[in-house]
Design a protein around this nucleic acid. Structure first.
Lengths: 279, 279
DNA sequence: ACTGTAGTGAAGTATTGCTTCATCAAAGCT
DNA sequence: AGCTTTGATGAAGCAATACTTCACTACAGT
């Protein structure tokens, strides 16, 4: 601004333009505003009282513009933005809980919203565009979705405590079962694996919460097949039938292929793929 | 903004430009910000989550710019601005008090600052540029100042109550006097008038306040010559020697000729010159 | 009075933003 | 499927804007 410079030419230089351009610019501004900003006394230009008021308003306008610029650079670098992420409970709690905390701490200007739900719901939300990314059990091929593998989790079989040893070795005698609700991807995978082994998979109790399934097994309601992280954690950890997993459940990061995500989302995804699975 | 319009072309029309220009403009904006604002799905353009954040910031910037515009029009019409006015006490109280109140009421966005002082001080301040206008006793010709006449005030002679009748008719027996301080313009004018009449003008008591001079006369300390509005108002109004005025004091509106005043100042001046002198 | 200098106007030029026209791809229709 | 319609975009051209350089005027300081 010209208010704090003594000479017209000095102010022009501060603006980085020639004195002539500065003069023309001020004249054009006065014309467009219809307000005289400077009194002319000899070769001296004295700012009018109107000029100081105009300067305050002009500074606010410039600051508002600069705020947009700042936001743009922050968004460009991934320091700011909106990230709508979804995770299944195991991922949110066991595998990526501290990663999420760390991301939150390192990116305070990112608005990270996490929703925990079942794989099916998460993938549906990603498809609808309500979620930017989801960590879920790998789904069938879908050309509109991109799935990058994150973690392979072993799923083991857990009989109720006190099950006779002869039943343990014969899969046809396994069951009955407690498992996730019918819509669960894991339940479907487990069911398929048991069928190929010749075992029945009659589910006598359901819950979406691994904690609840674990307690049911402890109470003798039935067998279950769970991810190790869900089954063998205290309190009341279960004893696996064998160390060998029944199947391996693959957790992937799902996102829409057509949607260009912001750098903030990319940053979170990179963090997830770089994360070593917590054993 | 394009966020609330369904089609790209519709938004372009709302902006008053061709669809092509709109497309180019958005592309340029995305390029300059370095942030993708719209996802392209088929021929559909879906605003990114970044776009809604950017829109909020952009609206603020536009509003700030509009505020400057509003201020400019307000200033142009005289509805807003800064007015630094000066008046001698008589003008501020008797002649223009209610005019000032009215102006304040009608122009709430005008920052009106009134300073009451002697004519000499006021004119000095106008000369220095610290006052935009002053209502004062007419001064000697000064090419840098413009003086527009406002009011002619009669100045009458007031003897102390109980003065012998034979002294009243003979100016050479008038006096002694109480009057304004030596720097006062009115005092000088009165002194000159009395001299030409052959009367002495020995001042035995001074005050810048007409109220005080009036009381001194009532207490018999001496004669005075005052503007009617100052002398003949209750309480303790004085009795004039004759209805004919000794002199007429001319109040003028003084302003610097070289300084371009804002419309707010012009409005006040017009109000003053249009004001009928309160009798 | 002279001279240096600050501010301004005029002419020319580069950049910007717009329009029109052409092109391309996605929807919609039969 | 094939055709047509339509909406977004790129290219060329044009107008407006903002900047530069250069010349000029008038103030200021010796």
């Amino acid at each position: 601004m010209a208010l704090q410079h003594d000479s017209w030419a000095e102010a022009a230089e501060a603006c980085g333009v020639s004195p002539s351009a500065f003069s023309q610019g001020i004249a054009a501004l006065e014309r467009s505003l219809g307000v005289t900003l400077f009194d002319v006394a000899g070769r001296r230009r004295t700012p009018t009282s109107a000029a100081v008021a105009a300067e305050a308003l002009a500074r606010r306008a410039i600051a508002a513009h600069g705020a947009l610029d700042d936001w743009a650079t922050a968004t460009r670098t991934g320091a700011a933005g909106l990230v709508r992420a979804g995770m299944i409970d195991t991922a949110a709690i066991h595998h990526f809980g501290d990663h999420l905390m760390r991301y939150r701490r390192d990116h305070p200007r990112v608005d990270l919203r996490l929703s925990v739900a079942s794989s099916a719901e998460l993938v549906d939300n990603v498809r609808a565009g309500d979620l930017d990314l989801a960590v879920a059990v790998a789904t069938s091929k879908d050309p509109t979705l991109e799935q990058v593998p994150l973690i392979d989790e072993p799923v083991r079989v857990y009989p109720p405590p006190g099950t006779p040893a002869e039943r343990l070795s014969d899969p046809t005698t396994w069951g009955p079962w407690v498992s996730f609700p019918r819509s669960s991807r894991t339940r479907r995978l487990v069911g398929e694996a048991l069928s190929t082994m010749g075992a029945s998979f009659d589910v006598v109790a359901e819950s979406s919460q691994p904690r609840v399934l674990r307690e049911m097994v402890r109470l003798g309601m039935g067998w279950t097949a769970l991810v190790v992280a869900d089954a063998e954690t205290e309190p009341h950890a279960l004893e696996p039938l064998t160390p060998e997993p029944l199947i391996r459940r693959r957790l992937v990061c799902v996102r829409r292929r057509d949607r260009r995500l912001g750098p903030a989302v990319d940053g979170l995804i990179q963090l997830l793929v770089a994360a070593q699975p917590t054993p």
